[in-house]
């Protein structure tokens, strides 16, 4: 697969491990970006395919802390982004617990973009799914129209201001961009492979129950050294 992030992100790694030392994901998960870069650099296709099927490539938080610290100017997180794209294009993402979560991300953030023009809107951050947002967020969502009106004249309406409703012509342009540039096909592909995997796992397809399972399941097998 051609992906400029493979080229930009990986020139010649000397395996020093600075990326792993500074990586927030490596502190939390059984995860070592140095090792991933090493595997990609060997061009061993069987090993790379194993990565595409694994939880490993889904641990990175894409904070990019690895990028400024690499003495060779590489960006392991770019390599991860390219691997994740490849894992989804080939359908292998559904073979891991963390990979299957792409369906939940597509159905939340992804569908929000095509529905509203934003990645999130207040009512999409549901307090029952976000207990960490605390009682303040529950109060904000319960009183959104009244509260946001303090800061925006156009909450949910057209015009300039915070959380304005994006007009239909603009939304048409965004939909067309997704169609022409492959974004829509990418979404559809996530749905297609999730549907296949859901049935294989005994669900009635990639329905709400399957999606919520991908959103909440944590096997707790991600932390051993």
């Amino acid at each position: 697969m051609e992906d400029v992030r493979f080229e930009e992100g990986l020139k010649s790694c000397m395996n020093c491990g600075v990326c792993t030392a500074v990586c927030p994901a490596a502190e939390f998960y059984n995860y070592d970006p140095r090792q991933i870069v090493t595997i990609v650099q060997t061009r061993d296709e069987a090993e790379i395919e194993r990565l595409l099927r694994s939880d490993t490539i889904w641990y990175c938080g894409e904070c990019m802390s690895c990028r400024p610290r690499c003495p060779r100017g590489n960006t392991p997180a770019y390599v991860i982004q390219a691997l994740r794209t490849l894992s989804q294009r080939t359908g292998l993402f559904v073979e891991s617990e963390k990979g299957r979560q792409q369906l939940a991300l597509k159905r939340t953030i992804g569908d929000n973009i095509l529905r509203t023009g934003y990645c999130i809107v207040p009512r999409s951050v549901r307090p029952d799914l976000h207990p960490e947002q605390g009682p303040i967020w529950q109060w904000i969502v319960d009183n959104d129209t009244e509260l946001y009106a303090r800061f925006s004249d156009v909450y949910g309406k057209e015009g300039a201001g915070a959380l304005r409703r994006v007009d239909d012509k603009t939304m048409d342009e965004i939909h067309r961009i997704f169609e022409v540039s492959g974004g829509k096909a990418f979404y559809d592909n996530i749905e297609k492979h999730s549907e296949r995997k859901a049935r294989e796992m005994g669900y009635d397809g990639a329905d709400e129950e399957y999606m919520m399972a991908t959103y909440t399941t944590n096997s707790d097998n991600h932390y051993e050294i």
Binding site: T85, L105, Y118, G159, V166, F186
Partner: peptide, 27 residues
């Protein structure tokens, strides 16, 4: 200038790896 015509850059989608590079570039 606070433009009523712009949208999200789709960056959260891009860094969640559901929005491809070609798409975010066009947005």
């Amino acid at each position: 200038f606070d433009d009523p015509l712009h949208t999200s850059c789709t960056g959260i989608g891009y860094h969640s790896d559901i929005v491809p590079l070609e798409t975010i570039m066009t947005v």
